[in-house]
């Protein structure tokens, strides 16, 4: 009864708070959408720096493959290959089926003579579905399997073969999802070198010996961090670069 009366007679403060939150969410959504179109207008009018700035902010608020593709195009027109490749990689991270992002990446790598990241089999498998879909499938399959094992006992249902079969299938799907989830985890360490002629250092020190210069857009895998430096592995070798020189495909 108390609970009911509490529900029926809502606190005006709570109601006001909820209304304010709804307005805020709507405002964010509206402004983000407005930003997207503002970026589109700027891009169409040839104002690529403005478009890149707007889409960059927009992508931080609402990461979407379309925004990343547009951001990549604006960056590419500005001659910033590293950020462009990073934006398209992020588009693929959000939506692995996006053909435009894949095509743009292929074109950019061919034009700039860049390598594509080398993926392991479980990383390649993780591209079969979007990241959230893998999490969803793994979660549903696990809980379904657990449910089919435990619920008949708890609810005192009669044990049936189909329950066992569904539980086994659930576990199997869950186990099949595990390598892909691991692949997503390892893929999150992939990054793109943002600046051209980035020094690959031998040691994580200011006056370190430069082993080679990396081109903008070069894929790299970060292994560990020390101070302001990241130890990365590229197709050319292993070395240190400054944190600001590497953009992670999946930002933390």
């Amino acid at each position: 009864m108390k609970a009911c009366s509490h529900i029926s007679q809502r606190d005006p403060f709570v109601v006001a708070l909820q209304a304010a939150m709804l307005l805020l969410v709507a405002q964010i959504g509206f402004s983000a959408g407005g930003d997207f179109h503002a970026g589109l207008n700027a891009y169409r009018s040839g104002d690529c720096p403005r478009a890149a700035e707007v889409w960059s902010k927009h992508s931080q608020l609402q990461p979407a493959s379309g925004t990343f593709i547009n951001l990549g195009l604006a960056e590419w027109h500005l001659g910033r290959r590293g950020p462009a490749v990073l934006a398209w990689e992020r588009a693929l991270w959000v939506d692995p089926f996006n053909a435009d992002a894949r095509e743009n990446l292929r074109f950019a790598r061919k034009a700039a003579q860049l390598e594509a990241p080398t993926l392991t089999w479980f990383e390649a498998a993780s591209l079969w579905l979007p990241i959230n879909a893998w999490a969803l499938v793994a979660g549903i399959s696990l809980w379904a399997a657990v449910a089919f094992v435990t619920l008949p006992r708890i609810l005192r249902w009669r044990r049936a073969n189909w329950q066992q079969a569904l539980a086994a299938a659930g576990f199997a799907i869950f186990l099949l999802c595990l390598p892909s989830l691991y692949g997503i985890n390892t893929r999150s360490r992939l990054g793109i070198v943002l600046e051209k002629e980035t020094e690959l250092r031998l040691t994580p020190t200011r006056s370190a010996q430069t082993m080679m210069l990396l081109p903008a857009g070069q894929p790299a895998r970060w292994e560990r961090a020390r101070g302001e430096y990241l130890l990365i592995r590229t197709g050319y070798g292993q070395g240190w670069i400054e944190r600001s020189q590497l953009g992670l495909v999946c930002p933390k």
Binding site: T203, P204, T205, R206, S207, A208, Q209
Partner: peptide
Amino acid sequence: NRCLGDFQGAAEL
């Protein structure tokens, strides 16, 4: 110059 960088790096590490 490289030697200087090495010593400075060693001190930094």
